[in-house]
Amino acid sequence: MDDFPILAATGLKAKVADEDLHILKGVDLTIGPGEIHAVMGPNGSGKSTLAKLVAGHPGYEATGGSLAFQGEDLLEMEPDERAQAGVFMAFQYPVEIPGVSIANFLRTALQARLENGEELDLFDFQEHLMERMELLDMKPSFAERPVNDGFSGGEKKRNEILQMAVLKPTLAVMDETDSGLDIDALKVVARGVNTLKAENPEMSVLLITHYQRILDHVRPDAVHVMFDGRIVETGGPEVALALEAEGYEEYRAAHAA
């Protein structure tokens, strides 16, 4: 397994399920252990579709190429199997689940990772959860609230970070987690990612974003520009800065030509 990259997309093509709407038109992307890769692109370029395809969203369907996690074919796995293998996606729009507390949700998620018949020790779980919340500077009462029910945008993102901290993924996919956040909330997200990264340097991150500003706080190893369903440029942080200054005009022109 060590010989395989964490994530490898090769010629990946995908469309919207039940529709003839093709979004990814051949994506090549390789993320190694511990690397942070940012994927930027305008609306409709396919960057969020890539994230959802990694997590296994049923609304999207791969039509060509391959997508592997540590050498295993992700496209053959159910969303829960991917999660148990170590994939985590922080949602752009986390859903509300009335009546289910964050603690109960996370306890069930950890219980699901155990072998059949094995019972999660509730005391250990509580201790683990409290330790994780302390790491992220969160109040214990937060975990008693129903999942995202009536949360502000910032609270929802915090909740995503908390889940990530508890589940300790090998690959964290941040699907525009920074969208719609004010600068304070953005810093919370960035600090969360950095804290977890510092704790576990082997964790890889696929950071999907529309804006350069989060990259001031989370330093990427590589920045990819996505346009019309393909990765059209790859480089270092300077690529993001150039995008910020010049926008996507250059790519639009090239694409039109």
């Binding site: 997590a55 296994g56 969203h57 049923p58 159910e78 969303p79 829960d80 991917r82 999660a83 148990q84 985590f88 996606m89 949602f91 986390p94 859903v95 689940i97 289910v100 109960n104 949700f105 996370l106 069930t108 998620a109 950890l110 699901a112 990772r113 889940q163 589940l167």
Partner: peptide, 17 residues
């Protein structure tokens, strides 16, 4: 999908909801 993306099997997710 949200619950399954955290590792819950479909039936566990349904139960929780």
């Amino acid at each position: 999908f949200y619950l399954m993306s955290r590792g819950l099997r479909r039936e566990q997710a349904e139960r929780l909801v």
